[in-house]
């Protein structure tokens, strides 16, 4: 052996420490860059007014409102379906081929690239069902996208409830449905909500699925129905970063938009982490 095995270990471990630092460094580089450049742009006016002068000035209010609509719409669709799906898999069906099949399918759905959801949403919701470019079409598409995430987190939450609670409830004469409603779901609630929060973070950042189902390039008014188009934060960032009327002039707006997006994601992650700790 040419190298002492102690020295070898020292070198290897130092390298791994360095790599750990590097990964943390990358995150702080990205966050720092966006916060440093974006913080000066954020103001009450920036958050509450519409873009002006070819999106080189003004605020991003319509984009924030649009993203809120999409988050609300997609979660309202996906959350009940996801939770019910998980309840069925964990409480009703035993560990048979059906459940294994559903689990594999859910995993597969989760691994489909977001642009494929965009294509699918465009043919099914926009064209075949005739929703047009609308909040409804966008919400359906985004809802499908986060469904696997909601199912997975809910299933884990349900699995964490000890079986004795279920048998105890059943022994007291409660029916299965009553047990689920009154015992299992309330106990699993904090963890289920964690999944909900994570999916809010995910939906607010997705761009590819909304490109062809809902996103408007520039629409400085609030939506008036489920069938109106809206602007959305991630699409707005993409537009002003790559194809705005004056890319240099709209850079500050892009930093501001990126910061708002990052803050939403950070907040959601933080909220989920706190909820997990509370349990």
């Amino acid at each position: 052996m040419t190298m002492n095995k102690k020295t070898e270990q020292k070198i290897a471990f130092a390298l791994f420490r360095l790599l750990g630092l590097l990964v943390a460094g990358i995150l702080f580089w990205i966050l720092g860059f966006i916060i440093y450049n974006g913080i000066g742009v954020i103001s009450w006016e920036f958050l509450t007014t519409a873009p002006t002068e070819g999106m080189t000035a003004g605020g991003i209010f319509p984009a924030i409102a649009g993203t809120l609509c999409l988050v609300a719409g997609s979660v309202a669709l996906a959350f009940p379906v996801g939770v019910m799906s998980a309840v069925y898999m964990n409480e009703y069906a035993g560990n048979n081929w059906m459940v294994r099949f559903i689990r594999v399918m859910t995993n597969n759905l989760g691994s489909i690239p977001s642009i494929v959801f965009g294509l699918f949403g465009m043919t099914l919701f926009v064209n075949t069902l005739g929703f047009g470019d609308s909040i409804l079409a966008g919400s359906c598409t985004l809802g499908l996208l986060v469904l696997p995430l909601i199912i997975r987190t809910t299933e884990e939450a349900l699995k964490a409830i000890p079986g004795s609670f279920r048998t105890g409830s059943l022994a007291l004469g409660a029916s299965k449905l009553q047990t689920i409603r009154k015992v299992v779901l309330p106990m699993a609630f904090p963890n289920i909500v964690t999944g909900l929060i994570l999916s809010v973070g995910r939906v607010s950042g997705e761009t590819a699925p909304i490109l062809f189902t809902v996103a408007a390039y520039f629409l400085p008014k609030l939506p008036d129905s489920l069938f109106s188009q809206v602007m959305a934060l991630p699409y707005h960032l993409y537009v002003i970063a790559t194809s705005g009327t004056d890319i240099e002039a709209s850079r500050p707006i892009a930093y501001g938009t990126a910061l708002v997006l990052i803050v939403i994601v950070l907040l959601m992650n933080l909220l989920a982490a706190t909820l997990r700790k509370l349990k």
Partner: peptide
């Protein structure tokens, strides 16, 4: 890593996963 460092690194990596791809794109571009 000790438990403390792990507790710091784990959420860092989760955050890295949570950043929207369009923000990564913007970072790459800028």
């Amino acid at each position: 890593a000790g438990a403390r460092i792990r507790k710091l690194l784990k959420p860092t990596i989760e955050l890295l996963a949570g950043i929207p791809s369009v923000v990564y794109g913007f970072f790459g571009l800028a």
